[in-house]
Design a protein around this nucleic acid. Structure first.
Length: 588
RNA sequence: GCGCUCGUAGCUCAAUGGAUAGAGUACUGGCCUCCGAAGCCAGGGGUUGUGGGUUCGAUCCCCGCCGAGCGCGCCA
């Protein structure tokens, strides 16, 4: 298409340009320091110009000279530039650059030309990592997702989108814990509720899953299979030891299920698993959270990966046997104590499958493996990294990001939540109360390593005050103006931008220009929350400008320039909101 | 007790080692015959828990103390 040739070969990059100027000045002032990093930051205050460099302060020690004096010399040696209108020395020795109006507004054309690609990073090569995996949520499929999972879901999904946009190839993965005791507990819970439907007198264990969804699954099984799985209470209770140890009693119920149901146990087990997994998946899809891979823990056992992983550790001499169990010597890698990988009864622990899983991830050739865990799992980091090291893997390729807890408040009271007791607010309930957009955005309004207090009443009663509307409103406003203009937006790409002369216009331009570097920084730091804060700032700059200046004025040139600025703003709003999984309404 | 994550305006939260620590909310006072007032402008609000250290410069890095959450199982 001919239109693509309209894309300028080299868009003006102010940061690159100024870096070149400073490098040139540095070569004259201090030739020996030619390799010093040139840092350019965007000052918080408009009076400090468009860019500031701390180069003089960094050189003060080496040159044994006062920063301001070095700054003066640097400024004297700066090559003349058609894009710079003013260079100041301020504060402790900052060199402040103010760009010409043309250089400041040039970003508008850059945005409109690039469209959805504005801010997108190019694929990295060489020593930069390229293929990434983000594993997140990975909740046991033993019940509905709760608001804590929701935070992990929103964080992981936004992070993955951000990394992909920043130029990495990203795989989104959910680790399904479909093996192990928790699944057995869910199966037996359902079976016991099922027996209740046939009036078998068995007291429901207090540590079994209490949620209503368990009763629903029991009802489904009854509808589909009648009394096929019914066994008399006496037969069931015969397997359950008379003890105060409720865990031992629960294991007795599980044993009863396996013994009495025989091959039918597998049916109940797989039925409840697929039910919960499907529910979880649908919940996440509605929340705008998608996965490329649903990885089964059980497949690690079926393919012998778990046994191989343990054997590998054994071979490298990091396993010893004590009390009939096999222990991994994780203390050799900084863990607090050694950990069992295989119990005396021959059954592997979850830790063994975790090792196998991570080795599998590494075998798949990712340059970086990012695990998003709940903060309560922080104690597992040393042992997992230790196992990787012991297996000869490069543990620095594993990054673990911890997402802190979410506390819900209703009527000023903290809502106590426990998965087992079934007394918790589900992600689905939260989404229905607050809405998906507000939910996704709200979760992103704090750093993930910060505990989150979520006031349900506030989110419900004052949902109009939610920051997400502030950002979406800016988008809708722009759509409205463009609709009233009734022109062809494509013509704005080449609009003359010289009519943009007001401070509020330059402030908005500067914010737009910041977007690509913000994307890179947020991706580097695994910090999608900074994108949410950026969008709030961008919307704020837009609203301020919109109140200060009128877009649809009679003067044709001014109107075109301002429409172009509005359109560029909409482009970046749309880009950022979509990365966060928030919709971009035309009207609201 | 040991370990991890934290402690910033009344409240909820920001701040690649940079300049006078910023937003929102709440409070006070202004702005719609004018493109969407879910908006804008202005104002008061702080010893960044605390005491040291490193640095030209510390909310950020290091150490002690105080306080909060989480973890410390042959559960997942």
């Amino acid at each position: 298409m001919a239109a693509s040739s309209a894309k300028p070969a080299v868009a003006f990059d102010a940061r690159q340009h100024l870096t070149g100027l400073l490098r040139s000045a540095l070569a004259s002032v201090a030739p020996a320091q030619g390799l010093a990093d040139i840092v350019l930051e965007r000052p918080k205050q408009a009076s400090h110009g468009d860019f500031a460099s701390n180069l003089a302060m960094q050189l003060a020690r080496e040159l044994k000279t006062a920063p301001r004096q070095i700054a003066e010399r640097l400024v004297r040696e700066l090559p003349a530039s058609p894009h710079v209108t003013k260079v100041d020395i301020a504060g402790a020795g900052f060199i402040n650059f103010t760009l010409t109006p043309a250089a400041r507004s040039a970003v508008v054309a850059t945005v409109l030309t690039a469209g959805d690609d504005f801010g997108r990073g190019v694929a990295r090569t060489g020593r930069m990592t390229r293929r990434l995996q983000v594993e997140f949520v990975s909740a046991n499929p033993t019940g509905p997702l709760h608001v804590g999972h929701g935070r992990g879901a929103a964080y992981g999904a936004s992070l993955a989108s951000l990394l992909a946009f920043a130029g990495y190839e990203v795989t989104r993965e959910y680790y399904v814990n479909d093996a192990g005791r928790q699944m057995d507990i869910l199966a037996v819970s359902t079976w016991l509720r099922y027996l209740e439907l046939f009036d078998e007198p068995i007291a429901f264990p207090p540590n079994a899953y209490q949620g209503g969804y368990v009763r629903e699954m029991a009802e489904q099984i009854k509808q589909a299979h009648g009394d096929r799985y019914v066994h008399p209470a006496e037969a069931v209770l015969a397997c359950v030891p008379e003890t105060d140890d409720i865990e031992a009693r629960l294991d007795g119920f599980i044993l009863a299920g396996k013994d009495l149901l025989g091959e039918d146990w597998a049916y109940v087990h797989s039925h409840v698993l697929s039910e919960q997994l499907a529910d979880c998946r649908a919940d996440l899809e509605e929340f705008g959270v998608h996965f490329d891979v649903w990885f089964s823990e059980r497949s690690l056992y079926d393919t012998g990966m778990v046994a191989r992983a343990v054997a590998k550790l054994e071979k490298s001499g990091h396993i010893y046997t004590q009390d009939g169990a096999k222990w991994f010597q994780s203390t050799a890698f900084g863990d607090e104590k050694d950990r069992v990988v295989q119990r005396d009864n021959g059954i592997y622990t979850y830790f063994a499958s975790d090792i196998a899983y991570h080795l599998n991830k590494f075998e798949r050739g990712f340059d970086k493996v990012i695990d998003v865990w709940g903060a309560d799992h922080h104690g597992y980091i040393p042992r997992v990294k230790g196992a990787l090291l012991a297996s000869g893997a490069d543990a620095t390729k594993l990054d673990v990001t911890l997402v802190q807890f979410v506390s819900l408040f209703r009527d000023g009271q903290k809502v106590s939540m426990s998965t087992r007791s079934g007394e918790y607010v589900t992600l689905r309930q939260l989404r229905q109360e607050v809405g998906n957009d507000a939910c996704r955005f709200f979760y992103m309004l704090r750093k993930c390593d910060q505990a989150l207090d979520f006031d349900l009443d506030l989110a419900k009663s004052q949902s109009n005050d939610n920051p997400v509307y502030y950002v979406q409103y800016a988008h809708a406003r722009i759509c409205s103006v463009l609709a009233q203009w009734e022109g062809d937006a494509a013509t704005l790409t080449t609009a003359d931008l010289s009519p943009l002369q007001n401070e509020s216009e330059f402030a908005l331009c500067s914010r737009l220009a910041e977007y690509p570097e913000l994307v890179q920084a947020a991706a580097r730091d695994y910090a999608p929350h900074s994108l949410a804060f950026y969008l709030k700032d961008l919307a704020g700059d837009f609203h301020s400008w919109y109140n200060a200046e009128r877009v649809l004025v009679d003067d044709v040139a001014t109107r075109a320039a301002r429409l172009a600025l509005a359109l560029a703003t909409r482009q970046v709003l749309r880009s950022g909101l979509s990365l966060l999984g928030v919709s971009q309404p035309m009207s609201m």
